[in-house]
Deep mutational scan, measured.
Amino acid sequence: KNAAQIVDEALNQGITLFVADNRLQYETSRDNIPEELLNEWKYYRQDLIDFLQQLD
């Protein structure tokens, strides 16, 4: 998997990933985040941060 796929997957589930103060953050109206997504975000944290910062 790559960062773009993970960001896309999150968006499809109503979750927006973004970077604030060099930390990976998310916004969602969901009550909870599936644990497998959280684990994936932790595992790919630096890739996601790098990818999202390139988009800014």
Results as ranks from 00 to 15, higher is better:
Thr28Pro: 13
Pro34Cys: 03
Gln46Trp: 07
Thr16His: 14
Gln5Ile: 07
Ala4Gly: 08
Ala10His: 01
Asp56Ser: 14
Glu27His: 14
Trp41Asn: 00
Glu35Tyr: 08
Asp47Ala: 14
Ala10Cys: 03
Asp47Arg: 07
Arg23Val: 15
Leu24His: 00
Arg45His: 15
Asp50Phe: 11
Glu36Cys: 05
Val19Ile: 10
Asn39Ala: 14
Arg23Thr: 15
Leu37Val: 06
Leu52Tyr: 03
Gln5Asp: 08
Leu11Arg: 15
Asp8Asn: 14
Asn32Ile: 12
Asp8Gln: 15
Arg45Leu: 15
Asn12Glu: 15
Asn2Asp: 11
Lys1Gly: 03
Pro34Leu: 04
Leu17His: 02
Phe51Lys: 02
Thr16Gln: 09
Arg45Ile: 12
Arg45Val: 13
Ile6Gly: 00
Thr16Trp: 12
Leu24Cys: 03
Val19Met: 06
Glu40Cys: 05
Lys1Asp: 02
Asn22Ile: 04
Gln53Met: 15
Leu37Glu: 02
Phe18Val: 08
Gln5Arg: 08
Thr16Asp: 06
Asp50Ile: 10
Tyr26Ile: 06
Leu37Ile: 07
Glu35Trp: 08
Ser29Phe: 09
Asp8Leu: 15
Ala10Gln: 01
Pro34Gly: 06
Ala4Leu: 07
Asp56Gln: 13
Ile49Gly: 00
Glu9Trp: 07
Ile33Glu: 01
Gly14Ser: 04
Ile6Thr: 02
Asn39Met: 13
Glu27Lys: 15
Ala10Asp: 01
Ala20Thr: 11
Tyr26Glu: 01
Leu52Lys: 00
Pro34Glu: 06
Trp41Val: 05
Leu37Asp: 01
Arg30Trp: 08
Leu11Thr: 09
Asn39Leu: 14
Leu38Asn: 03
Leu11Asp: 05
Tyr26Asn: 02
Lys42Thr: 13
Ala4Arg: 11
Asn2Lys: 13
Ala20Arg: 14
Tyr44Val: 03
Tyr44Ile: 03
Phe51Ala: 02
Ser29Asp: 14
Gln13Asn: 10
Val19Cys: 05
Asp31Trp: 06
Leu37Tyr: 07
Lys42Asp: 15
Val7Leu: 07
Thr16Ala: 08
Ala4Trp: 11
Asn22Cys: 07
Lys1Thr: 04
Glu27Leu: 12
Asn22Val: 03
Gly14Asp: 04
Ala3Val: 10
Leu55Asn: 13
Gly14Lys: 05
Pro34Trp: 02
Asn22Ala: 08
Glu35Ser: 11
Tyr44His: 08
Asn2Ile: 09
Phe51Glu: 02
Leu11Phe: 12
Leu37Lys: 03
Arg23Gly: 13
Asn32Ser: 14
Ser29Met: 12
Thr16Val: 14
Pro34Met: 04
Val7Pro: 00
Ile49Tyr: 07
Asp47Thr: 10
Ile49Thr: 05
Asn12Arg: 15
Tyr44Trp: 07
Asp31Phe: 08
Gln53Thr: 14
Asp21Asn: 11
Asp21Ser: 06
Phe18Ser: 09
Glu35Cys: 07
Ala20Gln: 14
Gln13Phe: 10
Tyr43Asp: 09
Lys42Gly: 09
Phe51Gln: 02
Gln54Cys: 07
Leu48Cys: 00
Asn2Gln: 11
Leu38Thr: 06
Ile6His: 01
Gln53Trp: 06
Gln46Phe: 07
Asp31Val: 10
Glu9Ile: 04
Arg30Glu: 08
Ala3Ser: 04
Asn22Tyr: 07
Arg45Cys: 13
Phe51Met: 04
Glu27Tyr: 15
Arg30Thr: 08
Asn2Thr: 14
Phe51Tyr: 15
Leu17Ile: 06
Trp41Ala: 02
Ser29Lys: 13
Gln46Ser: 08
Leu11Asn: 09
Glu40Lys: 08
Gly14Thr: 02
Ala3Asp: 01
Asp50Tyr: 11
Phe18Pro: 02
Gln25Ala: 09
Val19Pro: 03
Glu27Ile: 14
Ser29Thr: 14
Phe18His: 07
Arg45Gly: 11
Val7Ala: 03
Leu55Ser: 12
Asn39Thr: 11
Glu40Thr: 08
Asp47Lys: 10
Asp50Pro: 04
Gln46Glu: 11
Asp56Thr: 13
Ala3Pro: 13
Gln54Asp: 11
Gln46Leu: 11
Asn22Met: 08
Phe18Lys: 07
Leu52Gln: 00
Leu17Met: 05
Tyr44Gln: 03
Ser29Val: 10
Tyr43Ser: 09
Leu24Thr: 01
Ala4Phe: 08
Glu9Val: 05
Glu35His: 08
Gln46Asp: 13
Glu27Cys: 13
Ile15Met: 02
Glu36Gln: 10
Thr28Gln: 03
Leu38Gln: 07
Phe51Leu: 05
Gln53Lys: 12
Thr28Ile: 03
Gln46Ile: 08
Val19Trp: 13
Glu40Leu: 12
Ala20Ser: 13
Leu55Arg: 14
Leu11Cys: 09
Gln54Pro: 10
Ala4Glu: 08
Glu36Val: 10
Ser29Leu: 10
Leu17Arg: 00
Gln54Phe: 09
Leu37Gly: 01
Thr28Phe: 04
Gln13Cys: 05
Val19His: 04
Glu40Phe: 04
Trp41His: 03
Asn12Trp: 08
Arg30Pro: 03
Tyr26Lys: 01
Glu36Leu: 08
Gln46Pro: 04
Lys42Ile: 15
Leu11Ser: 09
Gln53His: 10
Ala20Glu: 14
Asp21Lys: 05
Asp31Arg: 02
Leu52Phe: 08
Val7Glu: 00
Gln25Lys: 10
Asn39Trp: 12
Asp31Ser: 06
Asp50Met: 11
Asp31Leu: 10
Asp56Ala: 13
Asp47Cys: 05
Asp56Trp: 07
Leu38Pro: 02
Leu38Ser: 05
Leu38Glu: 06
Leu48Val: 05
Lys1Ala: 04
Ile15Ser: 01
Gln53Leu: 14
Lys42Ala: 15
Ile6Ala: 00
Ser29Pro: 07
Gln46Lys: 10
Leu52Ala: 01
Phe18Glu: 03
Asp31His: 09
Leu37Arg: 03
Leu17Ala: 01
Arg45Phe: 10
Asp47Pro: 08
Ile15His: 04
Ala20Asn: 11
Asn39Lys: 12
Asp8Glu: 15
Trp41Ser: 00
Asp31Asn: 09
Leu55Lys: 14
Pro34Asn: 07
Pro34Lys: 05
Thr16Phe: 15
Ile15Gln: 00
Ile33Ala: 04
Ala20Leu: 12
Glu9Asn: 07
Asp21Thr: 03
Leu55Gly: 11
Trp41Arg: 00
Lys1Phe: 04
Leu52Pro: 00
Ala3Met: 12
Arg30Asp: 07
Glu35Gly: 08
Phe51Asn: 01
Ala20Val: 14
Ile6Met: 07
Glu35Gln: 13
Asp50Lys: 11
Lys42Val: 12
Gln13Lys: 09
Glu40Val: 08
Asp47Tyr: 07
Arg30His: 10
Arg23Asn: 15
Lys42Pro: 02
Asp50Gln: 10
Val7Trp: 07
Ile15Leu: 03
Asp21Tyr: 06
Leu17Pro: 01
Glu9Cys: 04
Ala3Trp: 05
Gln54Glu: 11
Arg23Gln: 15
Gln46Cys: 06
Leu17Val: 02
Trp41Ile: 12
Leu17Phe: 05
Asp31Ile: 09
Gln53Glu: 10
Gly14Met: 05
Leu48Asn: 00
Ala4Pro: 06
Leu38Trp: 08
Leu24Asp: 01
Thr28Trp: 04
Ala20Pro: 02
Glu36Met: 08
Glu35Thr: 10
Leu11Trp: 11
Glu40Met: 08
Gln54Met: 12
Asp8Thr: 15
Phe18Asn: 04
Lys1Met: 06
Leu17Gly: 01
Gln25Ile: 08
Lys1Leu: 04
Gln54Tyr: 10
Leu55Val: 12
Leu55Tyr: 12
Glu35Val: 12
Trp41Gln: 00
Asn32Trp: 13
Leu11Gln: 11
Ala3Cys: 06
Glu9Gln: 06
Asp8Ser: 15
Ala4Met: 09
Val7Asn: 03
Gln25Asp: 05
Ile15Pro: 00
Phe51Thr: 02
Ala3Leu: 07
Ala4His: 08
Gln46Asn: 11
Asp31Ala: 09
Asp50Val: 10
Gln46His: 10
Gln13Asp: 05
Tyr44Gly: 02
Val7Asp: 00
Ile33Trp: 03
Glu27Ser: 15
Thr16Tyr: 14
Tyr44Asp: 01
Gln5Cys: 05
